[in-house]
Nucleic acid binder design. Sequence first.
DNA 1: CGATTTGAGTTTCATTATGCAACCCAATAT
DNA 2: ATATTGGGTTGCATAATGAAACTCAAATCG
Lengths: 174, 174
Amino acid sequence: MERKRFEQAPCSIARSLDIIGDWWSPLIIRECLYGTHRFDGIQRWLGIGRNILTRRLTLLVEQGVLEKRRYQERPARYEYHLTDKGYDAAQMLVAMMPFGESWLFDDAEPIRLFDRRTDRRVRPQLVDADTGEPLDMRQLYAGPGPAFPAVDDIRRERFTEFYARRDGRVSEDP
Amino acid sequence: MERKRFEQAPCSIARSLDIIGDWWSPLIIRECLYGTHRFDGIQRWLGIGRNILTRRLTLLVEQGVLEKRRYQERPARYEYHLTDKGYDAAQMLVAMMPFGESWLFDDAEPIRLFDRRTDRRVRPQLVDADTGEPLDMRQLYAGPGPAFPAVDDIRRERFTEFYARRDGRVSEDP
DNA sequence: CGATTTGAGTTTCATTATGCAACCCAATAT
DNA sequence: ATATTGGGTTGCATAATGAAACTCAAATCG
């Protein structure tokens, strides 16, 4: 069956997964971020099947993450470049780097990021924008925001449940 | 064919995608983060097929992201909880929220995060750990780190190419 | 001048994975 | 006695994936 899409979900994570919720799209975005812009280059670096790459590129262009530029006429040749949206999407990828370095490599990073103009090392970190403190996931809870489905919506039930514990009981697990 | 895995890739992003590189795993992690810990709860909130959920839960437990706890004997009942690794993985999801809010909703967020003890709003943001400045993706470039395949490795070719422009020419695109 | 290479894809085909619905089983609640 | 809850399995049709081969136009090599 067709992959399930989340463009209607009241959740930024779910909707983002419509764009980067597979294993190739993020890597294609990575390639564009790192400087590979052409079909063959991306294909070789990633080892992705050419048919799959075609599909993904088309999708990413449709979603406004990549822009297809003709860099040569006769024969027509193209490059794929990140759009503004694409650069923002790339932030989600960069946010994966600390996790990978902590848990998926033995104590050393495979890639380092640098600043183009200062050449200083850049270390991505997720913080609270207001306090600047690193986020502690155990300390968070979620609540509905302005765009959460209205109370008188069909999803009222889910909405109210939202405040309760979600497994359908009033639990007090840590 | 079987989905391609990246556990050997010299890239934190690629390896992370072995864990969250599909549309369901991140959402399952989200549910555990938000407080749903049981099979049925997760299944209903996500609308995921029960067979798929079984597979994903098994995988996430194998990967050490979730821990399966028996919370009742006779009949045996289980809960899935985030491990330390799981909480770190959740950071990657939270990093998707700013993107979703900026690009996938019309000017209002569906979900807000709060701090458990202060109840103050928390806004995730990706910054440079050293300077505290928000990351500008256009300003970044990547280079090999300590765990990048050695120069005398088979992948030497790729390594040296790394410094050059990646489309196989010396380009000077913006 | 013919042959190969480059860039950007299509096409074909065998395997998997996904989504959906139905089914199972133990114990408890009605 | 029947229904519900919790946690799964099983079976099936359809889609997506990976691998490899094939196009096609222009440029380049020998």
